[in-house]
């Protein structure tokens, strides 16, 4: 019973918060609602027994992504009111399309419930989430896992290509030169007379 109540509570909060993300006037509020949505989703994961995923969601999405969003929103001077003008122009038609999509999804859901009603059943062997991941991640899914690594690498290359600039006159950290410093190159012995300074 408690599970059912918490499910509906969390689900309701998730949907309501998602709605507020687009409805809120202040963009900072929007991001806050987004964080609330993520939390609710994490709660739903926990209800299903996927605690690892839930914590991952909180750590990655709330801890990193949403906070990044917050930074961006606060740092960029974007006139959200103006942007929403166009949005409101199409609201009628937009609602119609949304309604149709909702209806369609309801139909899918309805058949799921009424026709076969198969549900996800937890695995019989009592292993923890992490152990379950660990069993397959480097075995069955090794290839895909490697490929996913490459996806991240590509994203990294992209970020560097698009943003990194070699500009002159900018102080940069050079790890190699830092480490290969010796006493001779890194230090200069100067006799300073009192009251005169270095030079």
């Amino acid at each position: 019973m408690l599970t059912v109540i918490s499910f509906y509570l969390l689900a309701f909060v998730a949907v309501a918060a998602a709605f507020m993300v687009i409805a809120a006037r202040n963009p900072v509020h929007s991001v806050m609602y987004l964080i609330l949505t993520f939390f609710s989703a994490a709660g739903l994961f926990i209800l299903m027994g996927a605690e690892f995923l839930a914590l991952l969601l909180v750590m990655v999405y709330v801890g990193a992504v949403a906070v990044l969003f917050l930074f961006v929103v606060m740092m960029l001077d974007v006139d959200f009111v103006e942007m929403k003008q166009g949005f409101l122009n199409n609201i009628g038609f937009g609602l119609l399309v949304a309604g149709i999509l909702l209806l369609e999804m309801l139909m899918v859901g309805a058949t799921y419930v009424w026709k076969d009603g198969s549900t996800v059943v937890a695995r019989g062997d009592e292993v923890s989430n992490i152990e379950a991941f660990g069993r397959v991640l480097y075995t069955d899914y090794a290839g895909v896992f490697e490929a996913a690594g490459f996806v991240l690498l590509v994203a990294m290359i992209g970020a560097i290509v698009l943003t990194l600039r070699d500009r002159d006159g900018v102080r940069k950290q050079d790890a190699m030169s830092q480490m290969s410093r010796t006493k001779e190159t890194g230090m200069e012995m100067v006799d300073i007379e009192p009251g005169h300074g270095v030079g």
Partner: peptide, 23 residues
């Protein structure tokens, strides 16, 4: 479906960057 998605993402990410290559 998993490898399908990974493949698409790898291709797409590279394409996004290439599109904006003239930054």
């Amino acid at each position: 479906l998993l490898s399908l998605y990974i493949g698409i993402e790898m291709q797409s990410l590279a394409l996004y960057v290439m599109a904006a290559f003239n930054r």
